[in-house]
């Protein structure tokens, strides 16, 4: 069922990670994305994977939910790893028709799989341990300098936060609409691609209609609660950098340093 998706949820388990400054978390996450694509040998890949695992353990969230978010992208992982497996360069180890597997291909498949998995786990870890409001709050603050060039920082942050809030609601709604159309004999499981795409119409149209109606309602509700844009707004939850954050920064720096050193000292595998 659609509503089984755990990606983008927040779990208030009150771990060390929950108490980190969300701004710091976002910056570390960006650094992490960059560095994970700069792992060119198994040692550096191992370092980042170990680093990721450490964070998952620290989050005190059941591995079940991490598995759930992985399940969603399983197909993408398999496809990309297969693609990489068959399109490596060098001497073929095995060949059949247009498919040829090389040692380079195997390495590339392993790298791409581990990288995607790490990426998904890390982003799940970020959203699991940071409430949507904290997240958008942090983005708003990080982007504040952009206000100088008249970028609507507050509005963008508010839109993101509302979008995150309504993801589960809309998923639930999709599920309901699907059941209702199935009860009217809608066939979503059989037929060719065109037929299947057509079968989505009875689901997508009601979904859009309801999303617009909701948007209208939400706007009214926000105005009723004295919303008038970002000017003069305060926040209940203040965010401060503390010693904890600097330790996290230091650890991230250590990981980045480790990866860079490995890349310099060891030869690249891919």
């Amino acid at each position: 069922m659609v509503r089984d998706v755990s990606f983008g949820q927040y779990f208030p388990t009150k771990s060390v990670l929950h108490r980190l400054d969300p701004r710091g978390k976002i910056l570390m996450f960006i650094a992490y994305i960059v560095i994970i694509f700069c792992t060119f040998n198994y040692v550096s890949l191992g370092i980042t994977a170990a680093f990721t695992l450490a964070f998952l353990v620290l989050s005190k969230i059941s591995p079940k939910f991490y598995f759930k978010s992985l399940k969603v992208i399983l197909i993408i992982v398999i496809l990309t790893s297969l693609l990489n497996l068959f399109y490596g360069s060098g001497e073929p180890l095995w060949q059949w028709w247009i498919f040829r597997i090389t040692l380079n291909g195997i390495h590339r498949a392993v790298f791409v799989t581990v990288r995607i998995i790490c990426l998904i786990l890390a982003s799940s870890c970020l959203t699991f341990t940071t409430s949507p409001t904290e997240l958008t709050d942090a983005i708003e603050r990080l982007m504040k300098p952009l206000k100088v060039v008249h970028f609507p920082v507050h509005e963008v942050a508010m839109m993101m936060s509302l979008a995150l809030r309504f993801v589960p609601t809309l998923l639930e709604e999709t599920d309901k609409i699907m059941q209702a159309q199935k009860a009217r004999g809608a066939d979503m499981e059989s037929g060719n691609l065109i037929k299947r795409v057509k079968a989505l119409v009875p689901i997508l149209i009601p979904l859009f209609v309801s999303a617009f109606r909701r948007a209208y309602d939400v706007a009214t509700a926000m105005e009723c609660r004295c919303y008038r844009g970002g000017a003069g707004r305060t926040r209940m939850k203040q965010i401060h950098l503390s010693a904890r954050d600097f330790i996290a920064f230091a650890l991230t720096a250590l990981m980045i340093g480790g990866v860079i050193v490995c890349n310099i000292l060891l030869t690249a595998t891919i």
Binding site: E173, Q179, A180, I203, V209
Partner: peptide, 28 residues
């Protein structure tokens, strides 16, 4: 079986999607 056991869900109006009422009723 779904044609023989009809099911009207709660707030069924969210299932409407066609251009006209007649076409929507005709979907089933």
């Amino acid at each position: 079986v779904r044609f023989r056991v009809g099911m009207v869900f709660q707030y069924p109006e969210y299932q409407l999607f066609e251009e006209t009422v007649a076409k929507d009723i005709a979907f089933g």
